[in-house]
Nucleic acid binder design. Structure first.
Length: 863
DNA sequence: GCAAGGTC
């Protein structure tokens, strides 16, 4: 039987290209969450059955085991030595199961992952899923090395299969572990340290990472340059002349001087002569080169600076253009095209375009140029248009991006721009001046990329030795100006230069520092650090500047490169690097007060922020509500913080106090149009979590955290405390006979139901043995109190008519009619007793000593 | 909840 060969690519599109190339398009495809292409062919001299499928990037990602997931219970220092686990990145995708199933019965596994370190690492993830073993006899693991997915390259790679490179894969394992441990330890520590400490500080997450922090560092560095910039005055002069009717302003060779007296002296020397002599006329043929192929980083820079599209958005658009087949794969480092690239084909697809069709047709007939030699990173070809599109097909932003990709591509195969530079030099009073003229002879690629055009500047004819009068020459004053905030495009260049992030992750890091509120994108896509951003970086600088310098990334890269080259052992390197970071971490923890001093100067203390909202149950003074994330209440006199549910609004709830602790209740309304509201006690909400609670509304299970919101089994209307009564404080029942306070149902006493008064705290017993008691919206016609409904369990009730639900008015001392009567809409009040007849009865004494009589036909007072 | 790296 023909041996089976399983081939795995990094993404579905590559699997398709490989299968198409090897089967010459004669394959069958099994569709599924991941497609499998099958065909028969020759493999290593044998007839074989091929199956080609793919993963979608990394199959696994690294994390801490669950025992290290609790922020409170974990010592951050322990994280550095903690075990790590590989978990499926996308468990719902079942990639591992898919690979394992497809590998069954296969004798060969051929790995077509991208040819970089990450790809090598994914090779071993695939090997693990398939169950292949490197030392197994009879089953072979092979690695295809290819730099593009053209048919030629694929066939060549198949003929030259190698072994996967374990060292490179281990280098990625090392990076993953270092990044995880360092990032998580610092992030958890500083988040916890600053969380809730200051009023106007958004401290949901104060993250640290070896890529994101230096990225922020670049923005803050520029900010500091601007803030500390001291302008300097300078002086300059430029003679005006008239020649052949042209008025010309000459440039001074000294450009400018920072000393007024010296500048004035030179000016006087020139003015004394007031005549210029032409000392030289030179002409140079110059060349402006057409661009290399377009890679991701350059696309992102143009998108940000010229199209006003942020890197994150630009990549989303590019991704869509790619999946729709308009452009080639948009994540690439390479600016060089593979030798076999079919430029004619790409140009042909664009020749009917109304904007650049003419240019293309002339390139196709007159011959086009090969693009300038760029660099080949061995990943994917430069970003290239694949098929024609119109603005209507793509939508405005995607169209602008696509248009640029087309223009850039056409530029790469167009002629260079050629122009003549004429420089005329002058002298007067010993000072030198010049002017420059530019004349374009061949527009070349600049006709398709007009923003790069050389600006023509005509000069009149000058001859050496010619003398010309100066018309005007004033001494001008200027002042040096600070640089502008760092533009996104400059940031991308800096990140690329320092090896911070990759083509795919650079947009993610920039997005991160925006989302975490460390920088803001201003007009012209310039990045302005926030108070939090600058304080963080200044804080690192005050403790250990290494933490925010780009070298921190290059240090890690350098270390893992040793692993990749097989010069150092993986675990030794990881241990060595982690040991250094452990020391840095310990020192950071020890010196965190240095950073805190900066926070203190920058942010307001809790006592200074917020507005008075509700009363503290301990000291009865008003607490301050601090609305900045995380929302919380702060008691200035007790110096206690009470966190509130996030992502919603908070207001005082009817001035009710929690019967357990005396804290005034607040009403939380979830954000969104149909956001639910519920009252809660700030103290109980911050009490230890519990499993759930039984209320009049039924059993409510809370999420693992015991907090409200996500993970809770149902929308929760109470605070997560086991003995809290607020769930029932949804409406007052009636006036307290003692003090006119509001009587409120007290579910905690069930089945010994009681009412309690929210002011004098007196208790009134309700029928014992009731299964459920609740308030209704009906009111007593005598005293206007709310009617109570009492539900008896049949087992516990002595009723003969089988009815179990009773209603009544507590104040009028009535326990009345059955459910059956209510259902039929009959009046269920026994008339005859006067309004407020029972007022003054009941109260504290009675509440304590309830009757043992279970007959619901008796009045409330008899219980 | 936290990093950075793949890809969707």
């Amino acid at each position: 039987m023909a041996p089976k060969v399983l081939m795995v690519a990094e993404k579905p599109s590559i699997a398709l290209s490989i299968a198409s190339a090897l089967s010459h398009g004669r394959m069958s495809t099994r569709r599924g969450s991941t497609d499998v292409h099958e065909f028969d062919g020759m493999f290593q001299g044998f007839h074989a059955h091929f199956k080609v499928t793919s993963v979608a990037g990394h199959v696994f990602s690294l994390d801490f085991p669950s025992t290290y997931q609790n922020w409170e219970a974990t010592d951050n220092l322990d994280l550095f030595q903690a075990p790590v686990v590989k978990l499926e990145s996308n468990p719902k995708g079942h990639i591992c199961r898919h690979l394992s199933q497809e590998a069954r019965g296969c004798s060969y596994l051929v790995l077509w992952l991208d040819c970089d370190r990450e790809g090598e690492n994914i090779c071993y993830e695939v090997i693990e899923c398939t169950g292949f073993n490197e030392n197994e006899v009879g089953r072979k693991i092979l690695r295809a090395r290819f730099s593009s997915v053209t048919e030629k390259d694929i066939l060549e790679a198949l003929e030259n299969l190698v072994k996967p490179n374990k060292a490179e894969a281990l280098a990625v394992d090392a990076r993953q572990e270092i990044d995880l441990k360092v990032g998580v330890a610092f992030t958890r520590f500083q988040t916890r340290y600053f969380q809730g400490k200051y009023g106007n500080l958004d401290s949901r997450i104060i993250s640290y990472g070896p890529c994101q922090t230096p990225t922020l560092g670049f923005c803050v560095q520029r900010y500091m340059q601007i803030m500390t910039f001291k302008p300097e005055k300078f002086w300059y002069f430029s003679p005006y002349i008239i020649k052949d009717g042209y008025e010309l302003q000459l440039e001074w060779d000294r450009n400018r001087l920072f000393d007024f007296d010296v500048a004035a002296m030179f000016q006087k020397l020139v003015l004394d002569q007031n005549i210029l002599e032409v000392t030289g006329v030179s002409k140079n043929e110059e060349n402006k080169s057409r661009p290399c192929g377009l890679n991701t980083v350059n696309l992102l820079k143009v998108a940000s600076s010229a199209l006003a599209l942020g890197p994150h958005v630009a990549m989303q658009l590019a991704e869509r253009l790619y999946t729709q087949g308009f452009i080639s794969y948009p994540r690439t480092e390479s600016t060089a095209y593979p030798a076999s690239f079919d430029f004619r084909n790409v140009l042909g697809a664009q020749q009917n375009n109304p904007i650049w069709g003419n240019h293309i047709r002339s390139l196709l007939t007159d011959g086009f140029h090969k693009p300038r030699m760029g660099s080949d990173a061995g990943d994917h070809p430069p970003i290239t248009p694949m098929r024609a599109a119109t603005e209507e097909m793509l939508g405005n932003d995607a169209w602008r991006l696509y248009q640029y990709i087309c223009q850039h591509f056409i530029g790469t195969v167009s002629p260079d721009c050629k122009y003549t530079r004429t420089k005329v030099e002058f002298t007067s009073g010993g000072e030198l001046f010049h002017c420059v003229g530019l004349h374009v002879s061949t527009k070349g690629f600049t006709s398709i990329m007009p923003w790069l055009a050389v600006k023509e500047k005509n000069l009149p004819q000058f001859t050496k030795g010619e003398k010309i009068n100066i018309i005007k020459m004033d001494l001008q004053e200027g002042s040096t100006a600070p640089p502008d905030y760092l533009s996104e495009s400059e940031l991308i260049s800096l990140m690329e230069k320092h090896g911070i992030g990759t083509d795919a992750s650079i947009p993610v890091h920039i997005n991160n520092i925006c989302e975490r509120n460390y920088v803001q994108v201003n007009s012209g896509r310039r990045l302005v650090p926030t108070a939090l951003g600058t304080t963080l970086i200044r804080g690192y600088q005050s403790i250990d500047a290494d933490l925010c310098l780009p070298d921190i990334r290059s240090f890690i890269e350098h270390q893992i490169t040793m692993v990749a080259k097989g010069k150092a052992d993986h675990s030794h390197v990881v241990q060595h690097v982690l040991q250094q970071f452990t020391q840095k971490f310990s020192y950071f923890v020890k010196k965190i007060e240095n950073m805190d001093a900066l926070f203190e100067a920058q942010f307001s203390t809790l006592a200074e922020s917020g507005r008075l909202l509700s009363k503290c149950g301990k000291c009865t003074r008003y607490m301050k509500f601090i609305s900045t994330q995380p929302a919380r209440l702060y008691c200035t006199s007790c110096e206690e913080v009470y966190y509130l549910p996030q992502n919603g609004s908070i207001k005082l709830y009817k001035e009710f106090a929690c019967p357990l602790d005396g804290f005034e209740l607040v009403l939380f309304s979830m954000s969104g149009s149909d956001g639910k509201s519920f009252p809660l006690c700030p103290y109980c909400y911050n009490s230890p979590p519990f499993e759930g609670i039984t209320t009049l509304f039924g059993s409510i299970k809370l999420g693992n955290s015991g907090k409200l919101g996500k993970g809770a089994g149902m929308p929760c209307f109470l605070c997560p405390h086991p003995t809290c009564r607020h769930s029932m404080i949804t409406q007052g029942v009636c006036a307290c006979p003692e003090c006119s306070g509001t009587l409120i149902l007290d579910p905690i006493s069930a089945p010994k139901w009681r009412l309690y008064c929210n002011i004098c705290n007196c208790m009134v017993s309700l029928p014992q043995g009731a299964h459920r008691i609740s308030t209704t919206s009906n009111r007593c016609p005598d005293c206007d109190s709310l009617i109570i409904e009492v539900d008896f369990n049949k087992k516990t009730t002595p009723l003969s008519d089988g009815a179990t639900l009773y209603s009544g008015c507590i104040l009028c001392d009535e326990l009345l009619h059955s459910l059956i009567e209510m259902k039929h809409g009959k009046s269920f009040f026994r008339r005859g007793r006067g309004r407020g007849r029972s007022r003054g009865r009941g109260g504290r004494g009675r509440a304590r000593g309830g009757s043992k009589n279970d007959d619901p036909k008796m009045s409330f007072r008899d219980f």
